[in-house]
Design a protein around this nucleic acid. Structure first.
Lengths: 200, 200, 200, 200
DNA sequence: GATGAATGAGGATTCATTCAT
DNA sequence: TATGAATGAATCCTCATTCAT
């Protein structure tokens, strides 16, 4: 009621979502080329022409998935800006919270993450988005003297993304550790370093 | 007469190496599926059947490249075992040396690195090899009390690999930084952390 | 209650005519195969299933259009029979009138003409209809001694149709000349020939 | 001997020609869309991939055929320029010769003619080429006073092409008349007209 | 050691058409 | 009278791979 025109009914929406869901899984698991449209539609309970009712091509649905991931990720980072003037004692937990948010997000969207972070050719650009975000936060904190002044923060951000990436694959997606744990460990390592202070 | 059967002469070797070289470049740049045998041989100045004189399949040449990378990498790690009982003061430079060795290696084999580290499906396994190697070294040093006792070294190793990975792509392969610089920065970050010690 | 079953109401008729109109245009412009049912209905403001409410197939609507053209054309030719015993002096204008009638008709039904005369596989047969008609008229006039006796009138008729065809495309449909002009020119050429009589 | 490099051997040439031959026949008989690549190669004794060894697409082979026709036709018209200063008495036979050359050509290349003259979308442009050629010749003769001065020669040329077109289809390709006959009849009609001179 | 020629196998995409509402 | 949703049936085309020389 109130909705008119070529609006897709709920049935169509369901079909489209079924396709998207299956496609994400297939792409995540087998990559772009080894994923067949025929497989996607079969698993979604449809036939090939139906696929083209909702997506103009295999390339298009892949892009749609990548963009979904990218957009969600950008929203996540934007909602997690560190406010300034925080107490130094709670900085670690603040950072941990940000990191665990990312891990949480990855955990909740495993297929999307695999695609957008590891399979898509845009993955480099997507990572750059987060690196920039992290860099910005780190620089602010560095200026507030929370961090050492002699470190290049973009490099740190790259290291962090790398760490996140690896831990996501080897610990998070294998269910060995949860987002909170991973965030804490990263904070611990990156904030205090490996050096043994006691015997220092 | 001294040569029997499939013994490859120098001409054949040259052809094979031409193919391998081009293939590595193509695979590195376009990935496995988007690299066509026809392109490889064309660029190598040969024809398609010749390809199969040297490699049983496209899959096979890809594997050969991946294994070359893997083996070289393993050799590298094995040659860089940290000897025990080192002076704490030179530990950082020792570690940096190991890291810069890795970066050096990656730098010298950019195509292979892209393939073996980012494109091959075995890349996870390959990374595991290095992670294990690094972990072993870190554990030894941890037991020798050089490092904090409360940190899980495998996690550190994963972080390191992630950092190496990212910096390789974003700094090394873009010629922004050289192996030595990257190694030093990593050591600095991971050893001492971001924390501002002075104001601590 | 007075309407039973498939009786088409005025709404349906309008839809059908909208489809026919668009279809004629599309077929005329793009030919049979390059015209898509989806395009027709979209332009007619309807959906694909509606199309099949009025036409059993794409082939069917095409045929309907072709037959419409064919029938109209036959009606035209039948209404333009030359009455016998006409004055020799007005023969040219009589013929011109017949020809201009044809051009007029083509001009008023450009889409139909393109389809029925140039696109439909039945176009040959349709042309034969006119050729026969023209031949009949020519023969009558030939017997009445208005025309040379040593000419095969069917050949003349074929030539005329060819001329009409070409001039329709290149002069009429490009709005370079009007039906009357074209008719006159044809009469002039065919009746008196190219030969220069004065210097003869 | 003397030939080196990527030159196609005679076998390949034969295959390509076989494909071309069959394709011309199929296109001529069934049109572009109803002609399937699969049919062409099957009839040529090959498989589908072989088709793409010689032609980049179905569209491409069609174009190649059309261009072949177009080029041959242009060569024909260029070789048949009417020399000036001819005797008025032999003008008819000169013109007839030119026409019969065209009919001859069409007769020798029936498939090509059907494609290039009736099926290809470029057919209009191709006809324009000949119309221009004929127009040029006619104008020259008109200036030499062989023809009436009060006739628009481009219109005549269009009529001639139309006549040729129709007679080709209905008389030549049905083997009812031969090129010479058709040429003569056209000359007779167009030169002297239908008018009965005797009773004039 | 090399190639001209050919192919098996498969995959994306399109389009006319229909079903259920 | 009309449509959202779906599909059967093709068709073009690609690519790794092989055969015969």
């Amino acid at each position: 009621m109130g909705q008119r025109g070529r609006q897709k009914g709920s049935v169509g929406i369901k079909s489209k979502e079924a396709i998207l869901m299956v496609a994400a899984e297939e792409f995540a698991e087998h990559g772009f080329h080894e994923t067949k449209v025929s497989t996607i539609v079969k698993r979604a309970g449809l036939t090939q022409p139906s696929f083209y009712l909702y997506f103009s091509s295999k390339e298009a649905i892949f892009q749609e998935i990548v963009h979904t991931f990218r957009n969600k990720l950008i929203m996540l980072t934007q909602s997690s800006r560190l406010e300034p003037d925080l107490d130094k004692n709670i900085l670690p937990s603040k950072i941990a919270k940000g990191l665990s948010g990312i891990f949480e997000f990855f955990n909740d969207h495993r297929h999307l993450t695999k695609i957008g972070f590891f399979i898509a050719s845009e993955s480099e650009e997507i990572k750059r988005v987060i690196v920039n975000h992290i860099t910005k936060n780190l620089l602010a904190e560095q200026q507030d003297n929370y961090f050492r002044q002699d470190i290049e923060m973009q490099t740190v951000a790259e290291c962090l993304i790398g760490a996140i990436e690896r831990l996501t694959i080897t610990k998070l997606f294998t269910d060995e550790k949860n987002p909170q744990q991973l965030a804490n460990e990263i904070v611990d390592i990156y904030l205090y370093g490996l050096q043994n202070h006691e015997t220092n």
